[in-house]
């Protein structure tokens, strides 16, 4: 099989992530998170990271691992309620936090990846989120200006990839991953399966390979479930 963008180890995939980098990271809760890349960053020990991701994992998994290791300086997220360490570090002033409405966060990443520096949205008007932001009226309704986000590195998790970096996601594990993939100067995708060029139906590709610089085959997926709920028998 042609090697293309496929790298052979997690270490190689993240070799140039340095202290102080801004990382945009896919996933919703613990669903569709780049588990192996996060563990790789924990082992590498880079610090002073700014991390943009919808959530911050739980105490002992996902981005929570980097919090526990005190590698994160600033977190940009929409919901962080699942993590006690987060609370401790935030209250002690160790951790800087920017809370962003979820739709605004998704659109900031989409805009960043699409070369749009800023946009207007009604989300957050008249709330703490609007403080210090430009306001403008369109057709009689007030909007606030929000900035696009581009990270030094984007870390995503996909179901399948080919060596060109084309990605296919699975069910709700898609979530933030496709927008995050567009918003990195260097985008690293870890996947469950790598298939040959031409094996993915072009109609089914969610993220075209143009956005992806490195592909790594992940292993030992835990895919932890935060709230196991089953039908009453």
């Amino acid at each position: 099989m042609k090697k293309g963008k496929v790298v052979s180890s997690i270490t190689e995939a993240i070799h140039d992530i340095q202290d102080g980098a801004t990382l945009v990271v896919g996933g919703f809760g613990l669903c569709g998170i780049p588990e192996n890349l996060i563990v790789g960053l924990q082992e590498k020990g880079v610090t002073n990271l700014t991390v943009v991701s919808n959530n911050c994992g739980v105490d002992d998994w996902g981005l929570g691992l980097l919090l526990a290791n005190r590698q994160i300086k600033k977190m940009v997220a929409s919901y962080v309620g699942e993590n006690k360490l987060f609370e401790q570090q935030f209250l002690s002033g160790e951790l800087e936090v920017e809370l962003v409405p979820q739709g605004t966060l998704a659109e900031r990443l989409r805009a960043g990846g699409a070369g749009i520096p800023a946009f207007y949205t009604a989300s957050g008007v008249g709330t703490l989120v609007a403080e210090g932001k430009e306001q403008k009226e369109f057709d009689g309704r007030t909007y606030i200006m929000e900035r696009g986000i581009v990270g030094d590195f984007a870390l995503v998790k996909a179901w399948k990839a080919d060596p060109l970096g084309n990605l296919v996601f699975r069910k709700t594990a898609r979530n933030f991953n496709p927008v995050v993939a567009t918003a990195g100067k260097i985008t690293i995708a870890e996947v469950e399966e790598i298939v040959g060029i031409g094996e993915l139906d072009p109609d089914e590709i969610h993220t075209p390979g143009v956005y992806v610089q490195r592909v790594i085959q992940g292993s030992h997926y835990q895919k932890r479930i935060e709230r196991l709920t089953v039908a009453k028998q």
Partner: peptide
């Protein structure tokens, strides 16, 4: 299925005719 959750992070199913999409 750990790849199939709702916004409350609970495991769920889909109904016939359901569609998946990204956050944006």
């Amino acid at each position: 299925d750990p790849d199939l959750i709702n916004a409350g992070k609970e495991t769920i199913t889909t109904i016939p005719g359901a569609a998946f999409f990204d956050s944006a």
